[in-house]
């Protein structure tokens, strides 16, 4: 399925779940998302993560609402968390962000400055992880411990962002990137009618379930 269509579809379902207090629907949504995930052939680590991830939040929601709310509400909130986790994974574990950005650019006309700026920044994700470690260790060498709430840590993160953004934008412009100029595409995104059809029919089924369950 096209990642843009999938994104909009999952977003609509997620927002709807926020307003619906129905454990049965949460449960069905979670099952459907889980089946989709099983068919997506992820790595076993991801499946393990999907099994472990809900445990703590579900327990937390369950005890909060069975202590302070009603038993019924506890079931709704606990199942809702599972539905969210699996719906979210059905998007983020199976979709390439670059694909989504391409769709946003080519089909829904997001300005190219944003699309390519974001694509550039996304490639820095592994370096950001490394940089946080580096900042941490560099501080330790001077006998300072930076905790996650330390303004020093944020200051250095912002300093690095400023440096990298200057370099990356210079590099992009020197390679011919012109802000918001029309572009041709090597990979053009085609949204198949089938994708819309599947998304819309699933949404209709969901509305019918909400109305009748």
């Amino acid at each position: 399925m096209n990642s843009g269509v999938k994104f909009v579809f999952i977003l609509i379902v997620s927002i709807e779940l926020t307003f619906i207090l129905n454990a049965c629907i949460n449960f069905i949504v979670a099952i459907v998302a889980a089946i989709y995930l099983m068919l997506s052939r992820l790595t076993w680590q991801r499946y393990l993560l999907l099994v472990l991830m809900p445990i703590l939040p579900v327990l937390g929601a369950w005890t909060s609402f069975s202590t302070y709310g009603t038993h019924n509400m506890a079931i709704v909130m606990a199942t809702r968390i599972v539905a969210y986790i699996y719906l979210g994974a059905a998007f983020s574990f199976t979709t390439n962000m670059v694909d989504l950005l391409n769709t946003l650019e080519q089909k829904w006309h997001l300005p190219t400055t944003f699309v390519y700026g974001l694509r550039g920044a996304l490639t820095f994700v592994p370096r950001v992880k490394q940089e946080i470690k580096t900042i941490h260790i560099a501080a330790l060498m001077r006998g300072e411990h930076l905790s996650f709430y330390s303004p020093q840590l944020f200051f250095k993160a912002i300093l690095v962002s400023l440096q990298w953004s200057t370099r990356l934008s210079t590099a992009m412009v020197s390679h011919g990137f012109t802000e918001n100029a029309p572009r041709t595409h090597f990979q053009s995104i085609i949204i198949q009618k089938r994708d819309w059809l599947i998304a819309i029919s699933l949404l209709v089924i969901l509305q019918l379930m909400i109305a009748y369950l």
Binding site: T113, F114, Y116, G117, L118, G120, A121, L122, F124, V125, V128, K129, I132, F148, A157, I158, V160, S161, L162, W164, S165, T166, L168, S169, M172, V173, F177, E179
Partner: peptide, 19 residues
């Protein structure tokens, strides 16, 4: 928004996203 602003804000977002 210039290209640089967009990258800058996106990089801040990546740092905070990780946090």
């Amino acid at each position: 928004w210039s290209l640089r602003d967009v990258i800058f804000i996106a990089l801040i977002a990546v740092f905070f996203g990780f946090i």
